[in-house]
Amino acid sequence: MSFASIVDWDALLTVVWASIAAGIGVTAAYGFVILGTTRAVDLSREGRVGEAVLFGVVGAAGIVTVFAAIVFGIVVLSE
């Protein structure tokens, strides 16, 4: 029995890509939450409402992505 055949490479590759996608993806999405909210607050204080709204949307999209990813992950795990 060869080394290549005793390892479930499909399952292991799934672990690798899922970890990279979830780990880096969710972290980056949360980074955009902080970027969006911080810039939205700063710009609204400067009276630049249009840009503030745009960054607010970025922040909101980030938070939706984070929670959607977590819910999706838990649903997949519990199946």
């Binding site: 479930d8 399952a11 292991l12 799934t14 672990v15 899922a18 970890s19 979830a22 780990g23 969710v26 992950g73 997949v76 795990l77």
Partner: peptide
């Protein structure tokens, strides 16, 4: 968390 959860699923 991502690595442990993905590994648990596998």
């Amino acid at each position: 968390a991502a690595v442990i959860l993905a590994s648990s699923h596998g």
